Amino acid sequence: ADDEVAKLLVDAYRKNDEDKLEEVKKRYNISDEQVKRLIRKVL
């Protein structure tokens, strides 16, 4: 599931889509710190 979330985050990140990032964060209840970590893992 982590990889799936990471893909969604990276996708939103690449598109610079703040709304999507927020949506994913809320849906999976993850912190900014986790977001950064997941994005770093993929990029």
Rank of each mutant, 00 (worst) to 15 (best):
V10T: 07
N16Y: 06
K15P: 01
D17V: 03
L43H: 04
D2R: 10
L8P: 01
D17F: 04
D11S: 05
I39L: 13
L8H: 05
Q34H: 08
K25A: 06
D19H: 13
K25N: 00
L21E: 00
R27T: 09
S31G: 05
Y13F: 11
Y28L: 03
L9W: 02
E18I: 15
V24C: 04
A1R: 11
D32G: 04
R14C: 15
D3S: 11
R27D: 02
E33I: 07
E18N: 15
D3M: 11
V35W: 11
R14I: 14
A12L: 09
N16M: 09
A6H: 06
V42D: 03
N29M: 07
Q34T: 11
A6R: 08
N16T: 03
K20A: 15
E33N: 06
E33L: 06
E4V: 11
E18G: 13
Q34S: 06
L21T: 03
D2N: 11
K7M: 12
D32F: 04
R37I: 13
D3K: 08
R37S: 12
A1H: 13
E18K: 15
D2L: 14
V42G: 07
L21D: 00
E23S: 07
R37L: 12
Q34M: 13
K20C: 09
D3T: 09
R40M: 14
E23G: 04
Y28A: 01
Y13S: 02
K7Y: 10
R27Q: 10
I39W: 03
K15L: 13
Y13V: 06
R40G: 09
V10I: 14
D19N: 12
L21A: 03
K7N: 08
R14T: 11
K25G: 02
A6F: 12
D19V: 13
N16G: 15
K36N: 10
S31K: 04
V35Y: 11
V5L: 13
A12M: 03
K36E: 12
K20G: 10
D17L: 06
K41V: 07
E18V: 15
L38K: 02
R40T: 10
E18C: 15
K7Q: 12
E33G: 06
L43R: 04
Y13Q: 02
E4R: 10
K20M: 14
V24L: 15
N16P: 03
D3W: 14
E18M: 15
R40N: 12
D11W: 06
S31H: 03
L9T: 01
R27G: 02
A1Y: 15
Y28I: 01
E4L: 12
E33W: 06
Y28R: 00
A6P: 02
V42I: 13
A12V: 03
Y13N: 01
V35L: 13
Y28P: 00
D2K: 07
E22M: 11
L38G: 00
D2T: 11
R27H: 07
L8I: 08
D19L: 13
E4W: 14
R14K: 11
V35Q: 02
E23Q: 10
Y13P: 01
V10R: 06
L21F: 08
D3F: 11
L8Q: 10
L43E: 06
D19P: 07
D32V: 04
D19W: 10
N16H: 13
D32K: 04
V5Q: 02
K41R: 13
L8R: 05
R37Q: 13
R27L: 13
L43K: 04
E23D: 07
L38Q: 01
K20N: 04
D32S: 07
A1W: 15
V24F: 10
K41G: 08
K15F: 08
L38Y: 05
K25F: 02
E22V: 06
